[in-house]
């Protein structure tokens, strides 16, 4: 019993610390972005994002900027972790945003050269090569929980924007799954509207739910609706007229 309360007490304390670290980072981002003293907190926060599988682009950019201001303080491990998180943020181009702040001489060093190569493969949708390369670099990638799932999410995102119906082998290759694992994965997606079908030619395809990206006719013609931000431009006019 005693040990269990201790355990809970510890968990609670850790959670409180996490909370306060998050709070401190929030403070940093709004008030102390350009202060070298906040570096340790931001580095801890990178680790925190990995443990809790969360993500904060602005905090990471802030840390890389501080490294840029003082290259002697660069923590290579923290930078590498941020970059892996950047890959996981695909399809957003966060990885590229991070690279823009990292001096070019580091780009040719490991693990950065490998990460750059992986990013290029992902950006150009060469998934087969990507998974081969990723398998060879487990030591960098697998320490980051959720990496594989994030990459599969990205592959699916790009496929579902491009295909209404994707040939099964193309899907299998892109998410690096086969056999029962693949069947299970597709089964799990059925509630999201995926359907496995057989074409008249006898090929198996997976149908994605229709969206404006894979079914252009679904795109809303926006010519007649005005977004709120447009309308808000008229507010000062209306106000001054009524005065």
């Amino acid at each position: 019993m005693a040990s269990s309360t201790d355990h809970w007490g510890k968990r609670k304390q850790e959670a409180a610390e996490r909370q306060s670290l998050k709070g401190r980072v929030h403070q940093i981002l709004s008030h102390a972005q350009y202060n070298p003293d906040v570096l340790p907190d931001l580095e801890d926060y990178v680790q925190e994002q990995i443990v809790s599988e969360t993500y904060d682009l602005n905090a990471n950019l802030c840390l890389l900027r501080l490294y840029q201001f003082n290259p002697a303080s660069v923590n290579i491990h923290a930078v590498a972790r941020i970059l892996v998180k950047g890959l996981m943020a695909l399809p957003a181009l966060d990885f590229q945003l991070y690279m823009s702040l990292i001096p070019e001489r580091l780009h040719v060093e490991e693990p950065f050269a490998t990460l750059l190569n992986l990013d290029a493969l992902l950006e150009t949708a060469r998934f087969k090569e990507f998974w081969t390369e990723a398998a060879r670099n487990r030591d960098i990638l697998e320490v980051i929980p959720g990496f594989e799932a994030a990459m599969q999410r990205y592959a699916v995102h790009v496929l579902a924007m491009t295909y209404l119906r994707v040939p099964l082998p193309v899907l299998a290759e892109a998410i690096n799954m086969n056999g029962p694992l693949l069947d299970k994965y597709i089964g799990q997606q059925e509630r999201k509207g995926w359907e496995q079908l057989t074409t008249p030619e006898g090929k198996t395809v997976v149908k994605f739910p229709s969206s404006e990206y894979n079914t252009p006719s679904l795109r809303k013609i926006t010519s007649d609706n005005l977004p709120l931000e447009q309308i808000s431009k008229l507010l000062p006019v209306v106000e001054s007229t009524s005065l």
Binding site: A92, H157, V158, L159, M161
Partner: peptide
């Protein structure tokens, strides 16, 4: 796929 990806920019925030 690359063409689709590069012409549809997703804001990560």
């Amino acid at each position: 796929l690359t063409y689709k990806h590069k012409t549809h920019i997703v804001d990560s925030v």
